[in-house]
Amino acid sequence: MNEKNKPILEVKGLKTYFTTKRGVSKAVDGIDFTLHKGETLGIVGESGCGKSITSLSILRLIPSPPGKIAGGSILFKGNDLVTMSENEMRKVRGNEISMIFQEPMTSLNPVIPVGEQIAEALRLHQKMGRREAWAKSVEMLKLVGIPSPEKRAKQEPFQLSGGMRQRVMIAMALACTPEVLIADEPTTALDVTIQAQILALIKDLQTKIGMGVIMITHDLGVVAETCDKVAVMYAGNIVEHATTEQIFANPKHPYTQGLLASLPKIYEDQEELRTIEGSVPSSYNMPAGCRFASRCPYQEAICTAQQPELVEQSDGSKVRCWKYTEQWTGQVEQEEVV
């Protein structure tokens, strides 16, 4: 029982910085989260919030230079991926932790048959022979719902549609039955009817394999439909971490509230959408206080002075906001968000 409750992936204080001519960009600046077996964690945020850098950091695929993991640890089954040797890391990639990317059009090698692209991981990690690996890759293509997989395996990516390519990516990622799957905007480039197919497929395979899934997305709809818990990222930080129900029913951080309010609703009419005024601070020059303070309707003196911590609330959710601490005076309390 205890063993089961232990997280499979534990990220603590992860920092990924990029050093360029303009200075140091703190793309990911101290984030913490955990992932359990069979669970789906959503990491959501707008472009530039650091969600994709986080996912690449876990597999240590940050282009270096200029990128570098500057601090923190990523414990996978108790071993720290940050300090692991490159050799050991390679045994994790594509084997125990797999990843699928946003662009199915460009993420597959254009000159190698898709079957071979799946089979090579099997030969490498599972020490399969050529024939065995090929048979398994055909089987994987079948599993992800590609019709006539024997024929398709021999084809090159340009002969497949976008939806089919993403299925191939999934087949490739899951070939070695990984324990963690990182899906970085897996359906953003796809049409909605295809997106529905792909999300259902990931969910289905997750229950079959029992892996933990990290779903990186900007789409709160995708989060609501696929995730058990959610980490909302803003300017390199996690600002709110809660179960999916909590996030949508009772968002605590002003940014989360603003994000949800700015979504056009498919089932109701609104005259005007709520917006978040202002813009995200530059990752090269982060403010000393709360990074959302300049755009926050509740801002108090302490907000610009000191950065709040991610603090656990009574309902188990975590929020990085002074409003939920004892230091909050409530003097400039504004109208509650509608």
């Binding site: 549609s161 089919m164 709160l220 949508f248 029913a249 979504l263």
Partner: peptide, 25 residues
Amino acid sequence: KALLSSIPVPNPTLKRERVMLTGDV
């Protein structure tokens, strides 16, 4: 109908009947 029901809705409590289309365009 399929198009409308395919949109992921940001409301986890809302359970809809989904018309899942098979295959590609």
